[in-house]
Design a protein around this nucleic acid. Structure first.
Lengths: 227, 227
DNA sequence: TCAACTTTGTGCATGGGTTCACAAACGTCT
DNA sequence: AGACGTTTGTGAACCCATGCACAAAGTTGA
């Protein structure tokens, strides 16, 4: 009756968002031969408060040793388990422009529980080109491919106008986890997860803060120019 | 004494993060010839609650008309102003691998208040290649360049091991807004803004939810396998 | 074995963010 | 001009997340 808390309880979204960072740092420490870390040390590496780190980890279970800290390897394994990275997730990328190429050859894929099984683009000029050993195929072949060799996560790297149609195709094929790099809001049925990564949103947020800094630095044009 | 609230008051971070989405949707509506929207309609487009949208907009000032809604063009302009997009922000990209190339040729740059003024990479094979009219130069030239033609935002698109050194170079040159695509935590002096965009973090968050869904779907292995 | 020290895990308080619900404000129609 | 319907802007309640502070639990050294 006392199963793994990671699977029984709800892990808060804010915590889930930090787990990959913890895992990355732990992996680096493991490579450096570090065997054990305290919450204080690990938190400092990651850039969070130690109390936050401990509370986050407490949602996965109790893997620390009081007076000592956490075993690096054990903790990394438990976080991997919680995130579902003990198995490999098959990923397909749709849209093989500059961004799609960059994503396909991104080393972060293979190392961490993800495996590219499909690359799609309807541009005939790209047909049969191979990246990391996978051929680029027309999107129409996706459903067929998915039936033979299931895809867990679809990545959309097309221009914005094509994104919704591609999304519909992915959902239609039965894929329910989507990572969207196109600057467009996708509408999907409930049960489908969409995460968006958008360069220009991030730039705009930076611009906002940059503006605030330059105004705070004694630039009073705004106040003077106010109507 | 009643200056623009966007410049006087503090706009919550959560609101700032949503403003680019509102702006993008408003721009699309404007292109489609829509003159006016209610908070209900706009919220539906963006995928948020109307109350949230109204509260967000209220932080910028009072630009709606009761009983009618918001003028699309006016609201878009006010959001642009709040975000600081009425002026162009000069951007430099460091690291011209696949990702750097993709970012440099990304159309979202020029259209929305950003302008690429520098591309840097120490790989001699890339020297003097031009993308969107800008030559790739060694990173050592950055400080000099910045002194002549200031850079507001630095984008790091290098592999993780190089990220901190590049970051130090950017900060050393006087750049205080950084967008980091490398999977590494950067340490910077206070006053410098860093935002991180990380593919593998996003994939891992998707994997977590995908795992939850597959477990919830009647797969009881976890409960049975529990010690 | 026991005391002193270290570090985890967590109850509790605090703060922000989201949602609800409604009064105030506007346009419209008679 | 006045009544009616619509939509904004916002006070108030709720909810989640963060940070503090400490008891519980472990190690180390005498």
């Amino acid at each position: 009756m006392s199963a793994d808390p990671a699977l029984r309880r709800e892990i808060p979204d804010a915590t889930v968002a930090r787990l990959p960072e913890y895992l990355r740092t732990l992996s680096r420490l493991a490579e450096d031969g570090v065997l054990s870390v305290s919450s204080e040390e690990l938190a400092a590496e990651v850039g969070v408060r130690s109390a936050q780190l401990r509370k986050d980890l407490s949602h996965l279970g109790s893997y620390g040793v009081r007076g000592v800290g956490y075993d690096v390897e054990t903790l990394a394994l438990e976080i991997s388990r919680a995130l579902g990275l003990t198995e490999d997730w098959p990923v397909a990328i749709v849209g093989m422009g500059n961004l799609g190429h960059a994503l396909a050859s991104y080393s972060g894929f293979v190392t961490k529980g993800f495996r590219i099984v499909g690359l799609y683009d309807d541009d005939p000029a790209l047909a049969d080109e191979k990246i990391v050993g996978v051929a680029i195929r027309p999107l129409a072949e996706l459903t067929e491919h998915h039936a033979v060799d299931p895809i867990a996560i679809g990545v959309i790297a097309t221009p914005a106008p094509a994104a919704q149609a591609v999304c519909d195709a992915l959902v239609g094929a039965g894929i329910s986890s989507i990572l969207n790099f196109a600057p467009a809001v996708l509408s999907v049925p409930s049960g489908v997860d969409v995460r968006r990564v958008d360069l220009s949103t991030e730039l705009q947020i930076l611009a906002f803060h940059a503006q605030r800094k330059s105004l705070a630095a004694g630039d009073l044009r705004a106040a003077v120019a106010a109507p």
